[in-house]
Design a protein around this nucleic acid. Structure first.
Lengths: 294, 294
DNA sequence: GTTCCGCATGAATCGATAG
DNA sequence: ACTATCGATTCATGCGGAA
């Protein structure tokens, strides 16, 4: 099956209306934070942030499949010595829209931005808010398992030899098999705290997250041929990763330079199928000639 | 100067009224979370939690010095597949009371509770909310500096040898001296993410919080002879640590067993100064004959 | 005196069963 | 239908006893 990539240039609130109801398996995005990135996105003031975001989250709720998940990467900034409260207000309002606030992952940034302030330490974490439409949704937990801590390695290996013998001597007891479940367990499920380094090699896009981040959530919440959406694609990290993992992807950005940049990064073999001109709202696809037009 | 410990038995809301205005340098506490600790505290329902806590935080605001800090350890649980929102509502209401929400530290619990569920991973973090009365407050950052990671040590040591040679050859260039400033920097400031394990060696009380936690905040926000308050002292971890660090401390708990336990742990040399009977609301002191009675 | 191993025990969460 | 209780699941940690 062909994997497609669609790009939209324009305001997410408007561009999202072109996407069909219940068609997206996963939304992963890192919208511009309040008062940040003024040069590129205009810098939404903290007190207008919720009002600005709600129409977009309304559209996201519409396009997401009932089994789908929405991961929102966000962190409130410090204003006049205090943490802003727009993230909390946003969660409360989105719940009123019909979203379920199912979980809050912590992204622990190991190499956080340096600096020193008299009454504050470096901010080394961000929120990864998980929202869903329904209480049951797709989650492929085994895809993101991690190696078990050292505590088990030494102990279970010794147990394994002892119980392997026991298993042979007592056929059909079921006990040995039960133990073997533990022996084979080199891997454990992760927690809701993610340890990732921020990437410092991103020059053209200011606040890109590391590839591991969308990779992890795409593994966890989608399977091959599913569709991933990033309504604030920026430099296109989410789309690039999705494509690599054989997921269809849709990206939106209001900044023409980002649109162009992501477009250029797509394989040339896909680009010749498209019209040469890039217009507001126009779309293109990769490894596919399908175009979702206006 | 003598270091004192005062204990109050009873409801925090009432007992706090006995404490003088602007007399506390640091409040560190971990109140019972909603619907938790039913056996000991009765389990405050999530939908009544804010209402229950606000009179207490009102008192805490009164007794805290303008330069003081309030650290609140809390985490919302999952109810019917969704995260509760009472913590967010509490923050919003406390701001209306006059508190400044200055920071949110993350306590990453390395040994979180095990378990597996179809749509959720283990919860491995808790909130450490920092509130203040004023925008400028006491903070002794250098007290909690941490060793720089090994990557820096080895790198700087190699640099040091190279540059020592260079320094010898180029006398007076100032370059060598500049480097040596970096070599001496074995310590760095921490971030707002704390990595600690919960203590599992509970004797009589399930002391959910490890000693390192209050230790860290007491170092950071107080100096010797300052006063630390824990309005939900439980097994008295905060008080024990404060005492060890030569800070005065005040503890309150509504559970007589905890009151007795903390009392018993105080040094006998201090106890003989006090009346033998333990009454509701009565207090005792350590290394001091002062008693704040009713 | 070390090091190693066995063990209990969590501010958990879900689904089923019972009143 | 709606709440209360119970069992099953799972993994890092420190203590105590043993080699």
């Amino acid at each position: 099956m062909e994997i497609t990539t669609h790009l939209y240039l324009g305001d997410s609130k408007e561009q999202l209306t072109q996407i069909a109801d219940n068609s997206i398996d996963l939304i992963v995005t890192s919208p511009p934070y309040a008062d940040q990135r003024k040069n590129t996105y205009g810098g939404i003031p903290a007190n207008e942030y919720v009002e600005w975001f709600l129409p977009i989250s309304q559209q996201l709720l519409r396009v997401l499949k009932p089994t789908g998940t929405f991961i929102l990467n966000i962190k409130e900034k410090v204003v006049n010595g205090e943490r802003s409260i727009y993230v909390m207000e946003l969660i409360l309002k989105m719940r009123q829209q019909g979203w379920l606030w199912t979980e809050e992952f912590i992204w622990h940034k190991k190499n956080s931005y340096p600096g020193k302030w008299p009454n504050r330490f470096r901010d080394a974490w961000e929120r990864l808010l998980q929202f869903n439409k329904e209480r049951t949704f797709n989650m492929y937990q085994e895809e993101v398992m991690i190696p078990v801590g050292d505590w088990a390695k030494t102990r279970l290996k010794k147990l394994s030899e002892t119980d392997r013998i026991r298993d042979n001597s007592k056929v059909g007891s079921g006990f040995g098999k039960n133990i073997s479940n533990w022996i084979d367990r080199d891997m454990a499920y992760p927690t809701n705290v993610l340890h990732l380094a921020t990437e410092c090699n991103n020059k053209n896009h200011s606040a890109a997250f590391p590839e591991e981040l969308p990779t992890w959530f795409i593994k966890l919440f989608t399977k091959e041929n599913d569709t991933v959406l990033d309504p604030f694609m920026g430099s296109g990290t989410t789309l690039k990763v999705a494509n690599k993992m054989k997921r269809n992807s849709i990206g939106i950005d209001i900044v023409p330079e980002y649109y162009e940049m992501v477009y250029e990064q797509l394989e040339p073999t896909a680009r010749y199928l498209l019209e040469p001109q890039v217009k507001y709202g126009k779309t293109k696809s990769k490894r596919s000639s399908k175009v979702r037009g206006k």
